[in-house]
Write a protein that binds this DNA or RNA. Structure first.
Length: 294
DNA sequence: GGAATCATGTGAT
DNA sequence: ATCACATGATTCC
């Protein structure tokens, strides 16, 4: 299925130009990653994509608000290390400090989160109705899942992989009742990828469905401001289990509300992007995209 | 710089 | 019980 067809399929969302640009961005990131030894230039890449460098320039500025050069820099290990920062400020202080510099910098104050009780978690979604729909996004086709308490799931489908994506999500809460309803999910989809539309007055409402440990990890992810990143061991320290960094990695990997709960801002201690449930390319794309917002 | 190896907590089976 | 991990530190080359 082509991207244009996917966008046609989506109902009730505004069709953003960013949505159709992702395919180009994805290919560029993959070429850079696969051929990192040969260091392909922008001209090389444009040629291989059958585009002119000028077209590519336009695509990047439209998609990320960044020139190709700045975008490529944003995707390097050096940049990731900078995101980690040097100083050892506790996360909350850091975010409050950065929050003073303007709207859109803060993450957690503009997202209200509510956790399911342990009992509800153990019931594996029994008694819960989850409505879902597919919508275009800057990072490919997204699957949005909501309950009446808020956004419960956000996932990404590869082209033609909608069913696999749905299964991946539905397995997490196997006893829930699933109803396709993209009219209901459209209002979430319209805001999720526009963090500048989140506000303290009208926060994005999310509901975390997971184990106690997972919820502690996900809450701590919500404290990472735009333009910053933390390591898995930072999170382990923060939740008071300093030797559990690997368990943190596992919990981060099971974050059901990707992007909104910014699990892409968790990196290895070296700055390496050690993994991403929806593909490392997408993690790079998110960090590059955010580099244009900060 | 790797590659190999170890200690490690959580959640699924 | 056992196993797979989106880790990280250490110890070899």
């Amino acid at each position: 299925m082509t991207l244009a067809e996917q966008i046609d399929l989506s109902r009730g969302t505004d069709i953003t130009p960013e949505g159709s640009d992702y395919e180009t961005v994805r290919q560029v990131i993959e070429m850079l990653t696969l051929d990192y030894q040969s260091q392909p230039s922008l001209d090389d890449i444009a040629e291989r994509l059958g585009q002119s460098p000028t077209q590519l320039q336009k695509t990047f500025t439209r998609w990320a608000g960044l020139s190709p050069k700045a975008f490529l820099q944003a995707v390097t290990l050096d940049h990731a290390k900078r995101l980690l920062g040097r100083e050892e400020l506790p996360l909350l202080e850091t975010s409050l400090e950065l929050g003073l510099s303007g709207p859109g910098r803060l993450h957690d104050l503009f997202v209200t989160h509510e956790a399911m009780s342990p009992g509800e978690w153990k019931a594996r979604g029994a008694g819960l109705t989850i409505r879902y729909g597919y919508h275009p996004s800057p990072f490919g086709l997204s699957l949005v899942m909501i309950t009446d308490r808020g956004l419960a799931g956000l996932a990404f489908a590869e082209t033609g992989g909608e069913a696999a994506c749905f299964d991946d999500m539905a397995r997490r809460w196997p006893n829930a009742k699933y109803v396709e309803d993209s009219e209901a999910t459209a209002s979430y989809a319209a805001r999720v990828f526009h963090p500048e539309r989140w506000s303290a007055e009208e926060p994005l409402r999310v509901v975390l469905i997971g184990s106690d440990f997972q919820i502690r990890v996900w809450q701590s992810l919500l404290g990472i401001p735009l333009g910053r990143a933390v390591t898995y061991s930072d999170i382990a320290q923060k939740i008071g289990q300093p030797t559990a960094s690997r368990a943190v990695g596992a919990a981060v990997g099971r974050n059901p509300i990707s992007f909104v709960v910014p699990c892409h801002r968790a990196l290895g201690k070296s700055g390496a992007l050690t993994g991403y449930h929806w593909g490392l390319t997408r993690k790079r794309a998110m960090l590059g995209w955010e580099a244009g917002k900060g």
